[in-house]
Nucleic acid binder design. Structure first.
Lengths: 200, 200
DNA sequence: GCGCGATGTATCGCACCGATACATCGCGGC
DNA sequence: GCCGCGATGTATCGGTGCGATACATCGCGC
């Protein structure tokens, strides 16, 4: 997850660790923490993979005769060409890996860099995922409501309403996307009637 | 966290692992997963600490002549006296450890076994925690709104509304608690017997 | 009599969090 | 002048929990 988040941010501009973390907090902080304890290892992995390079911002240490104590300079991370490719791949993913709880928010945050069709598919995937969950909660609630503790019940219902609220939000977003989408040019007119076409 | 959840559930009745997991999903599944990968290690730790014992449900293996292949029986977990004490301690906690994101839900789920005063303090702690966060988001949003990407903005605002919604929920709960609380009578002869009583 | 899904116990690798350590920079107070 | 302190900055460590997986048994339908 961090991988996508970091690549997405670095694609906007090169950053060093501290700044990166500030941005992560600002952009995703509402639903995700992303501490240094995961950021730095992730950066290391990405460097090894070749998605990013670390540029020694200043600190231009003259080889020989260490100028002062070890003098640690800012380390500026920046995307490589392969990194951009990798980012494009991640942004093009429109499967469960894009709409599960932990991942959806990050993908959504970078919708600005995502293909419109992929956007809609992710939003719809997320929505059905939530509707599934809603279904599960409602069923289990119906079966056990009477036996349930007052507080447990309250918790379930609050959770249920949260899910329903997010579903409404998604529905709105999907409609907005559809409206602003260019109507699919000539190739496939497919009128609203879902008549069974081409079925044997 | 699992510790409290498990102790709380086992306090209602002894269970084996599988059942325990089902209950965890049913009670807390809306906001927490709790897979076996954490459940079993946690159970082991708690056994070592002496909070629980594992009773060999059936499988009464006749020593000698293994009846069939190893024949693994259900392992029923049950609370010890120390475990009950430990649970009581955990339920009495009314600090940040009770109202942070990851923990609040679990504590709330066992409010039925929690002292009314502690309940209110946890609810209030949770609420100020959220109000703090709200404040942070609003400020950061005011500073950066113009520079923000359309989708990032949408995400922030949805997050903000979620927080505000939960604050309203908590406020309602707190008021209900206060209303149903008995006005501080005489020093109160604390009914130590845990007679399962709903609030009047 | 066979297959398959529910019940059941258990482990492994991995991502991430929170706390912490440590160094430097820049500013205001005295 | 210089001291302290908070912001900036890089980095690691231990612990918790997740998702996938392995493997065994049971009960049911067909």
């Amino acid at each position: 997850m961090l991988e996508l988040a970091v690549l997405g941010l670095l694609n906007e501009s090169p950053l060093h660790g501290y700044e990166l973390r500030q941005r992560l907090k600002a952009t995703l902080g509402t639903f995700r923490a992303f501490s240094y304890g995961s950021l730095y290892p992730s950066l290391r992995r990405m460097k090894v993979s070749g998605w990013i390079t670390e540029d020694d911002g200043d600190a231009t240490v003259v080889a020989g005769a260490p100028p002062l104590t070890g003098r640690r300079g800012k380390v500026v991370y920046k995307l490589t060409a392969e990194g951009k490719e990798r980012l494009a791949d991640l942004l093009a993913e429109a499967g469960p890996s894009a709409w599960e709880d932990e991942t959806f928010g990050v993908h959504f945050a970078f919708f600005g860099q995502t293909d419109p069709e992929v956007r809609v598919r992710i939003l719809e995937g997320r929505r059905s995922r939530l509707e599934e969950r809603r279904e599960g909660v409602v069923t289990s609630l119906d079966r056990t409501r009477s036996r349930l503790d007052r507080y447990t019940l309250q918790l379930q219902e609050h959770g249920l309403e949260s899910v329903e609220r997010e579903v409404r939000w998604l529905t709105e977003l999907i409609e907005t996307e559809r409206r602003s989408a260019v109507p699919p040019a000539v190739p496939a007119p497919v009128p609203t009637t879902p008549t069974e076409r081409g079925a044997p």
